[in-house]
């Protein structure tokens, strides 16, 4: 059971005038991930710390963490990054890979979050979804994947699929992700480099004007991406 935040602050701070950037981490915690969990947990703590320390990102980023193994679970519901405990209990691995269920949860929660922004007059950047796996779904995923894939193809979502190790079901990943945002293989154990890149990229986004976010180019991914 992965739970890294008790949801005390998960409500929306309407007195924060910054446009929001909802970010969902979809993390594979199936049994096969056991040799990567220490690095993943350390990188996650670094991500929480560094993103909260970045002035622009700390106001904009609202993070949700969903883990998937035998089932999909919300380890942390949407929470302003400034309010997240930077030293959460480590995620643990075990079980199969219920990725389809995780995609379903992410789709629903993103929809709800965007609606919440809308009904409060809060503007937002396009959401970020980061899907990390070392395998492939053991459950139904086709319909669960559809909405986010289409959003990505329309340019409404920054969708990043990260493949860990050599046993990823690449063909399925290609079908889950938008055509224009294909999965990227992580260099061996380069979780920290990857999350540092995410922090820097989201920082650039959240210090830009909402109408300008598509003109931002992210930093060099080559120290984590096996391209």
């Amino acid at each position: 059971m992965n739970n890294i935040n008790n949801n005390r602050y998960a409500n929306l701070d309407v007195n924060n005038p910054a446009p929001r950037c909802p970010v969902i981490l979809l993390l594979d915690t199936s049994g096969s991930m056991c040799n990567d969990m220490d690095e993943l947990n350390a990188a996650l703590r670094q991500f929480l710390r560094e993103t909260a320390a970045d002035e622009a990102a700390s106001r904009s980023v609202e993070l949700e963490v969903i883990t998937f193994d035998n089932s999909a679970e919300v380890a942390m519901p949407f929470t302003a990054i400034a309010d997240v405990d930077p030293e959460p209990d480590p995620l643990v691995s075990g079980g199969i890979t219920a990725m389809g269920a995780a995609l379903q949860l992410a789709t629903e929660h993103l929809r709800e979050r965007r609606k919440l922004y809308k009904t409060n007059g809060i503007s937002s950047y396009k959401p970020w979804v980061i899907l990390m796996t070392d395998g492939g779904p053991n459950d139904d995923w086709e319909s669960a994947a559809q909405e986010m894939r289409e959003r990505g193809e329309r340019g409404d979502l920054q969708y990043i699929g990260v493949e860990i190790g050599n046993d990823v079901d690449h063909e399925t990943m290609v079908r889950i992700l938008p055509e224009n945002q294909q999965p990227v293989k992580l260099k061996d154990k380069c979780f920290k480099q990857f999350f540092r890149w995410v922090t820097a990229s989201i920082s650039s986004v959240s210090s830009s004007a909402v109408s300008d976010q598509d003109n931002i180019c992210f930093g060099d991914p080559t120290d984590w991406a096996d391209l």
Binding site: N180, Q181, Q182, S203, C217, F218, G219, D220, P221
Partner: peptide, 22 residues
């Protein structure tokens, strides 16, 4: 050899994740 820290000017990779800048 590159050690960039931040966003580079426009121009994206094929998968939309960034641009190699040196």
């Amino acid at each position: 050899k590159s050690t960039p820290r931040q966003a580079a000017p426009a121009g994206n990779w094929r998968n939309g994740i960034g641009k190699k800048c040196t």
